[in-house]
Simulated assay, not measured.
Amino acid sequence: MSAMLVTILICFSTSVSAFLHFYVAFALIASKKTCTVSGFLLLHLSVCSTVTCILGFQAGFTISRSSSLSLFLCQVHGYFTEIIHPLVLWNLAFVHLDRFISIVHPLRYSSLLTLRRVVLLVVFSWILILLSTSPTLISRPGLSSNFSIGGGSCPPVWNSAPVYSIIYTFISYFTPILLMLIWNIYIVSIARHHEYRIANALFLITKQATRVREVQRTALQRFQGFTAILTLGQLLGSILILYTPYFTILIIEAFSTSASPIPIGVQWTCHVLLYISPFSNAIIYGIKSRNVRLTLLHYTRKQFYKSEVNREISRRSPAPCSRRPSISSLLSSFGGRSVEGVAAHLHAKLADIQGKGISYNETHKTVE
């Protein structure tokens, strides 16, 4: 694999991924769905993935040039690369948590997972990642950074501090992956024995509970039989395939004594997979999401309805050269009064006529 091919793959995938995440973010913001749990998580995922696309675009050009613009920019790129990928993994873990609670505890979902708690979870992930990468930020002597042509940035020299490498990998990769595996395996176990659960009979008591039961049954159908393999392959298989090689290289470099234990071609392949991850996340969690598609559909329908209403109003309004009187000309004939003033004027005239005792026939004869 040549450097030019790596650059083309990374730049193309990051460009398409940035467009898709902009589409998802626009759909959520335009429809005002960011105040919901799933909407907030998808918006945060889109922002983090867009930053990943920017870093990947810069890494692609750096790989093609085989050198960095400056040491400072290279270190900044390496530090943000060290932060952004764990944030995306934790964000995906929270998305799986949202699905887990909505399936396992559908009646208590609104009380267990509120927007405030989700925001606190996201803030906790930020604090955890920043604390785990703080040794790199303060530039400890044992964690110097050198330019890596395989990644197009300046990551830390992992074999200079193997203990830190293990802690960072455990917090950034193993913990969110383990949580996602536990939650999805539990969902599969529920889906297998869903028909024999006694608690489901209690859902038929009220109309609302019946609706929740139908929603839960529809969600569990994706985790039954052969469909469960396809669902887990999309949700977890993509994450494992795209992120595992990068962190595997990190661990190998941490316990290796040689300067470059990984061939340059393998490093390029791992980074290409890593920068394809925003595209995969945009498709699986954004474009294929029913909520996002319905949200954009409702927003488009609403805007189309508004344009049709404005077009109909402008069509029915009289043209400047038209002889048909408009409402403004009618109001001006009553001395520029408002609608309330015109009504009061007509009411006063009617009361005056009734006060004089003039009948309709007499008034008609007088007019004739």
Rank of each mutant, 00 (worst) to 15 (best):
L297D: 15
I262V: 06
F226S: 03
A319H: 02
R315H: 04
G152T: 02
Y285L: 13
K33C: 00
V118E: 08
I84M: 14
C154Q: 02
S258Q: 13
S332E: 07
A209C: 11
V157H: 06
V157W: 04
S31D: 09
Y186Q: 08
I241M: 13
P245Q: 04
V266S: 11
T133W: 10
T36W: 00
F100S: 00
L350S: 04
L294F: 04
I149W: 11
I251T: 05
F26A: 07
Q224F: 05
L55R: 06
S160P: 03
N159S: 06
Q208F: 10
R311Y: 12
I166G: 05
S172C: 15
T7A: 10
L120E: 07
T269Y: 12
L97A: 02
W158M: 05
E368H: 15
Y246K: 13
L178T: 03
V6I: 12
T62Y: 01
G341L: 01
L41R: 09
L296V: 12
L296F: 12
V309S: 07
I167R: 15
S277K: 03
H77I: 07
F94R: 14
G341I: 00
L71I: 12
W268T: 07
V212G: 05
P318I: 01
G237C: 01
T7M: 13
Y168P: 12
H271E: 06
T300Q: 15
Y285D: 12
G152V: 01
N146T: 11
F26I: 05
I182K: 10
S13E: 10
I171E: 07
T366Y: 14
L179C: 01
I252K: 01
I251R: 06
R140F: 08
S328A: 01
